[in-house]
Computed example of a mutant assay.
Amino acid sequence: MNAVLLIEQVLNGLQLGVMLFLMSAGLTLIFGVMGLINLAHGSLYMIGAFAAAAVAGATGSFVLGLGAALAAAAAAGALVEVTVIRRLYDRDHLDQVLATFALILIFSEGTRWLFGSFPLFLDIPDALRGPASLPLGIEYPRYRLTIILAGLAVAAGLFLLIAKTRIGIRIRAGEADREMIAALGVDISKLYTLVFALGAALAGLAGALVGAIQSVQVGMGEPVLILAFVVIVIGGIGSIRGAFVASILVGLTDTLGRFLLPIAFGTFMDPSQANLIGTALASMAIYILMAAVLVFRPTGLFGAAT
């Protein structure tokens, strides 16, 4: 096996992992603080990608596109929280699932009405085109490497926000006992809107970053949302640290599984069959990982015991 190719696949897994963290961090914050199941979180990812593609295409600036993605996703999240989600906090989870599923349909059709059914394309900035030279003679796409570094920087900033700031203290307190912090004078409605907008902005940023390496199209958020739910189940609901660790695990498991399993089966069977079986098993690997974690840790790796 080529060691350089293996390292490149590890880097691909890290890139997928940090993108999943941006999605799952907002999702686990929303569920942990508000107790809300938000199926429309993938639509906010899509909104970020479309906003970035539209603004970058109109202005020629990728940076402005990223800013538009953050602003559009955060604004959409805040608007949805104020107009729809706020009425669901005291309802059961079935009502939350049905309402947020309806939001998926609304966002999908609204996006199709605004941008049409054809995909958009977001160009990689010129400064980030081409390969970057890494140790051991590895040539890795500069943009994907930038995604990894940017995702890790955002993760560090989010950890500091939650752990070291007054807003972070309120968020953690709201997760532990929302009635108590409301009694202490914290405006719980504003806190919820802030948390929802923050989670939406992270999802929008993920969509914008990934939009430059794949087409931007309606419905692109739903497959990523499924992976994000797998991440928060493995990491533990409400745990940012768990979301980060689980995102990296899922990213590496999915990427290395698709790379290594066909090679492993190819040692004793026809290459075409090995590729078919290996790819099929690789697509199941993250769910096998989730099941294995839940057998030993029913609340997830870092979830609070009940």
Rank of each mutant, 00 (worst) to 15 (best):
F259Q: 07
A246R: 11
L227M: 15
S247N: 03
L260P: 08
T253G: 03
I237C: 01
I248P: 00
T253Q: 00
V230M: 04
V231I: 08
P262M: 08
R241M: 15
R258P: 02
A243C: 13
V245E: 12
I248A: 06
G236M: 12
T255W: 06
I213Y: 09
Q214W: 05
T267P: 02
R258D: 03
G242M: 11
T267E: 14
D254Q: 14
L252D: 03
F268C: 06
V250K: 01
I234F: 12
G221I: 02
S247R: 09
A212K: 08
F265V: 04
P262W: 15
V218T: 11
Q214R: 15
A243I: 12
Q214H: 13
A246K: 13
M220L: 14
Q214F: 09
I232T: 03
R241I: 11
P262T: 10
G251E: 00
T267K: 12
Q214Y: 08
G238C: 08
V224T: 02
I232C: 06
L261K: 01
A212E: 12
G219P: 06
I213P: 03
V210H: 00
V233H: 04
Q217I: 02
V250D: 09
L227N: 12
I237K: 05
P262S: 05
S215F: 14
D254S: 15
V231C: 04
F265Q: 01
G221L: 02
T267V: 09
I237R: 09
F268S: 05
V224P: 02
P262Q: 10
S239Y: 11
P271M: 06
V218Y: 11
G257W: 13
D270T: 02
S272L: 11
V233P: 06
I240S: 11
V210K: 01
F229N: 02
A246S: 13
G257A: 11
G219L: 05
T255S: 08
L225A: 07
V250H: 04
I213K: 13
V216A: 04
V216Y: 14
F244M: 09
R241W: 10
F244S: 04
S239W: 13
F259L: 01
M220Y: 12
L225D: 10
V250A: 07
L227C: 06
T253F: 01
G219M: 05
A243Q: 15
T267S: 13
V245H: 11
V224F: 12
L225H: 10
L256A: 00
V210Q: 13
T267Y: 15
V231P: 04
G238Y: 10
I232F: 09
S215V: 08
P223H: 00
A246W: 11
I234V: 15
L225I: 05
F265P: 06
G221P: 04
R241E: 14
L249K: 01
V210M: 00
Q214V: 08
G221W: 00
L256S: 05
A212T: 07
G238A: 05
I248M: 15
V216I: 07
F244P: 09
